[in-house]
Computed example of a mutant assay.
Amino acid sequence: MEYRISILGIRGIPAKHGGFETFAEKLSLFLVAKGWQVTVYCQENGEGDRWESNWQGVRRIHIPVSRDGAAGTVIFDLKATRHALSQQGLFLTLGYNTAIFNLMQRIKGQTNVINMDGIEWRRDKWGFIAKTWFWLNERAGCWVGNHLVADHPKIKEHLATRVSADKITMIPYGGDQVESADIDLLTPYGIEPHQYSIIIARPEPENSFLEMVRAFSKTRRNHKLVVLGNFTPQSNSFHRQVMEAASDEVIFPGAIYEASIVQALRFFSRFYLHGHRVGGTNPSLVEGLGAGCAVIAHDNHFNRWVAGPGAAYFKDESACAAAFDSLLADDAAMARMKAASLARFHERFTWPQVLREYEELLTRWYPSK
């Protein structure tokens, strides 16, 4: 049998935007190597007719959208879903943010597996209208999807309050092990290996940026804290608050998208700080484990399952400060935590393991007609 799959819900491949795009790239190439015919919908800026291209054996359908931001993404998802109605085979939708559009596929009788991502409507950054939209689409995704994927056991538990647990398969996000990196890439930032710790996340309140920066800045550390993220203090009061709370040992290099630089900064760090309070299996945390980072994470059931018992955890600012106080000078603890991160990574989060589980699920749900 010739297997065909169309992937919706992302901006496109190769990955340039985030975790779902990276996953779609990995899965597409994996399935192509297995003999699948893979189609991925790609969002483009501008106007005009859609066009097609081939990228490493993957058929890409490019759909131009003239609007920016969330509105443009909604328009793109609508156009992609409408085009998908003419396609054959299986469908994989990554995210439920516009799951109401997938109702068209359900009505037509297409088989659609939906990765339900995190609990988006719980995020602090969204206003009432956005939260309502996400809440409604989460409900819609649970109903119109033929089968659901949860990337974390707690996400599966949450979805099981909406639908039968038999309709949900838990498969986490994956990552690559980083065994080496270019030490010279640290030079522009004035830092030395293991003489700095790092935060890599979107600078949102729910990611504990203010608590972590305040905790670090309470006292002189003789250590650097590198905070990656797109900070705009002129227009964002929270960003301004974080930067004003920082001591002169905190470095804000901005958002860095060059993978080799991010990889080096993560690989040579003393500790990787992960403040996410909402979500499932977070890609950045998995990548930290794969790089063998010693992890200090916000204490919640999402992070504890991913990072495991070998990480250090904090509930609030004072606990985070205490972690810095006790761990920064403890080489033995850092070494134990790094080893624990790699062990946890190999236990559950390598790409070959994750992609094999997806292939098994998708094959099982492939339509018989």
Rank of each mutant, 00 (worst) to 15 (best):
Q177I: 11
C293H: 00
P367L: 08
S86E: 12
I129T: 05
T187I: 11
I155V: 15
L8R: 01
Q110V: 01
R60I: 15
L31S: 06
M243T: 02
A140N: 06
S269W: 06
T39N: 00
G109K: 12
R139K: 14
F314V: 05
R60H: 06
E138H: 01
E204P: 04
H147D: 03
S235G: 02
P203A: 06
A165K: 13
K79F: 15
Q37N: 15
G127D: 14
G18C: 04
I13E: 10
S164M: 09
G145F: 02
V40H: 01
L361R: 03
C293G: 03
L273V: 01
K369H: 15
T111Q: 13
L289Q: 03
R122I: 00
I168F: 05
K218E: 14
N146C: 12
R123E: 04
I171P: 00
V250Y: 05
T73I: 15
D330A: 07
V286W: 00
C42K: 10
K16I: 09
L186Y: 09
G288I: 04
P283M: 05
H223V: 08
G308S: 05
N45I: 14
V32Q: 08
S180Y: 11
R59A: 12
F30Q: 05
W135K: 13
A294V: 09
P203Y: 01
A165Q: 14
G175K: 09
G229L: 11
F231V: 09
G57D: 07
I7E: 06
S180C: 11
G35Y: 06
V144M: 04
A322I: 02
D248T: 10
A297C: 10
D248R: 08
I200F: 04
G279A: 00
I129L: 10
T232C: 03
V40R: 03
R139L: 08
A322S: 13
G229I: 07
H298Q: 13
A70D: 12
A259P: 05
N45P: 11
I296V: 15
K167N: 02
L31T: 05
A321Y: 04
L328W: 13
K79H: 13
A215G: 11
G46A: 06
F345A: 07
T98G: 02
K218G: 12
D182G: 05
P153F: 15
H83V: 04
F267L: 03
W143D: 04
A321T: 06
A319D: 13
L136A: 12
M170E: 13
A215Q: 03
P193C: 10
G279F: 00
S326I: 11
T161G: 10
V286Y: 01
A24K: 01
T93E: 06
G95D: 13
F238G: 00
Y366I: 01
A165G: 13
I256K: 07
R364Y: 12
I107R: 10
I183K: 12
Q56M: 15
W305Y: 15
S6T: 07
H62F: 12
D331M: 08
A181W: 08
Y272G: 10
T350V: 03
V178N: 09
D330K: 06
D182N: 14
